[in-house]
Design a protein around this nucleic acid. Structure first.
Length: 174
DNA sequence: GCGACAG
DNA sequence: ATCTTGTCGC
């Protein structure tokens, strides 16, 4: 967990769980959520917003890992995925901060038609964009702003980058 | 039936 | 995700 304004380190928590479900596109929550929930339960302070390595509502059924966890925690959550699961988009400008909408066809009888489900965001100039989407309790505009605010020198936002780093170190002890 | 497919 | 060497660009 990091402090939002200056990205100062606050704490790192982790949890190890045996995999009980395979990776199936669209069903990532069933594989990842248990460990995520266990780890979050160890936090000594509650975060204001979760940045999740996966999709929010940019999901075939609008319920990606970030949406799932946000609902479970009843906290704001942002889906920050490294690649696309569903939806169409135009390549965003190559400069950091450039972004285009991620759209998908909604087949629900309520509001059929094209729907914006996320944003394709360039978090670093000339580098592959990230797929940002609302997870829970936030707007897409804020999700993009927060993602960019956390992406300083690298492609991935700092919280995600530090988490990957922490996991790599933990795996050495196994 | 044929592609697409978060991590 | 993981395997895996050299290489391209700022």
């Amino acid at each position: 967990m990091l402090k939002f304004d200056d990205l100062d380190f606050i704490e790192t928590v982790s949890a190890a769980r045996k995999v009980t479900f395979p990776y199936i596109p669209g069903l990532l929550s069933f594989r990842e959520a248990p460990a995520c929930i266990a780890a979050a339960g160890k936090l000594t302070k509650q975060p204001d917003v979760f940045i999740i390595d996966g999709q929010g509502i940019a999901h075939p059924r609008r319920l990606g890992l970030a949406a799932h966890l946000g609902l479970f925690f009843n906290k704001p959550a942002i889906g920050c995925a490294k690649s696309r699961l569903t939806g169409k988009f135009e390549e965003p400008p190559l400069e950091k901060g450039g972004h285009t909408p991620l759209t998908d066809t909604n087949t629900a009888k309520r509001n059929p038609g094209l729907e914006t489900i996320g944003a394709v965001v360039r978090t670093r100039t000339n580098v592959k964009p990230l797929f940002v989407s609302v997870g829970h309790k936030c707007t897409l505009a804020d999700a993009v702003k927060i993602t960019l605010a956390c992406a300083t020198k690298y492609r991935l936002p700092e919280p995600t980058r530090l988490a990957h780093h922490a996991v790599s170190k933990l795996r050495l002890h196994i």
